[in-house]
Amino acid sequence: MKRGIVLLLVTMFVTYGLSSYFLVHYKVQKNDTLYSISLNFSVSPSLILDWNPGLTLTSLRVGQEIVIPQPPGYLYTVKKGDTLVIIAKRFFTVASLIRRANNLNSDVIYVGQKLFIPESIIGRAFNNEKFFIWPVYGTISSGFGWRIHPITGKYSFHSGVDIAAPEGTPIFAAESGIVEFAGKNGGYGLMVKIKSSSYEHVYAHLSRIDVYEGQYVKRGQLIGRVGSTGLSTGPHLHFEIRVNQKAVNPMNYLPSRIWVLRKELIGAGGE
């Protein structure tokens, strides 16, 4: 057995949950990187960042303990007004698959409950009719173009669309590409900018960033969570698409419907 695998076995211990997943508590070893750890556990760096708030590419320290779920997946905290169907739509999947993953006997859930969302079921209901997919499930609260700014009260140009959703709602990469920026950016708050083949796409006002600069992300990969950082009136995602560094109307590039139930999911007990 390779020395690296031996180290993994020696330095980790497992905490079993009540649902169909367990948590590995891994102690960082000398020469570990976020990427090497992700390879050893067959998870994405984004997943590790999401499970370990405050962790960054450069903050790993020898002896530091991080949490890694097996199988790969994410946690969602139930909020007031949530139903299993609504939560499923936020992950672009169906309620029956979440119910099965959490060993639930019914659709009854309660505020504050932690639900495990396996990575394998995420994105089953992405609408792939266009080049881009919707980055978040929510409601359009402000469109592209000139408007009265809700905070400054001034007539100004809105360079994207605002999609209102509860804080903590997952945000997915609308198209594959390289992360060019991930961090704080003035009124944008916590922001991610991804460069794809012909476009740049911007995600702003996040509560959490789950990618790092230079990382390649695939379309549909979770890159962060909805928040209200920066100049914001409430939890939402500000989403921009840029062509040759000029903002264009995202609605011309996004599918006509946000969430699409496919035939193969209906047999799985879809909504």
Rank of each mutant, 00 (worst) to 15 (best):
I241F: 07
A268Q: 13
A173D: 07
L84D: 03
H205C: 09
G224I: 08
S38D: 11
S196V: 07
Y212I: 14
Q70W: 10
E65F: 00
P69E: 09
G183P: 01
Y253Q: 01
L190F: 08
K184C: 01
V260I: 15
S159K: 14
I86H: 00
N31Y: 14
P53Y: 00
T169R: 03
S106L: 08
T233W: 01
G189E: 05
S46C: 03
I258Q: 10
F132V: 06
K79G: 05
H205Y: 13
A165E: 03
I140G: 03
S46A: 08
G269E: 06
G183F: 05
F22C: 11
V10M: 12
F181D: 04
V192W: 01
H158Y: 14
T77V: 15
L115C: 07
M251C: 04
K2T: 15
P118A: 10
H236V: 07
P135Q: 07
L97C: 11
I140P: 03
K154M: 15
Y216H: 08
V78A: 08
L115A: 04
A173H: 08
P69N: 09
G143R: 13
V108T: 15
L23T: 12
I223V: 14
L34K: 02
F131K: 09
L55P: 06
H25L: 05
G138Q: 05
H201S: 11
N128W: 15
I151V: 15
L60F: 05
F92D: 03
R257P: 00
I194D: 01
A247R: 02
Y137H: 12
I122C: 01
M1D: 15
T139F: 12
V217Q: 02
R124K: 13
N252W: 14
V226S: 02
G81T: 12
K80C: 02
P53C: 02
N249F: 11
E119I: 08
H158M: 09
P255A: 06
F239A: 02
P166N: 11
Y35E: 13
G234M: 00
I87E: 06
R219C: 05
S96C: 10
T83W: 01
Y76R: 02
S36E: 12
D162N: 11
F131P: 00
K27L: 14
Q245V: 09
V94E: 10
Y188C: 04
F91Q: 05
L254G: 03
E271P: 11
S197W: 13
P166A: 10
K114H: 14
N127A: 05
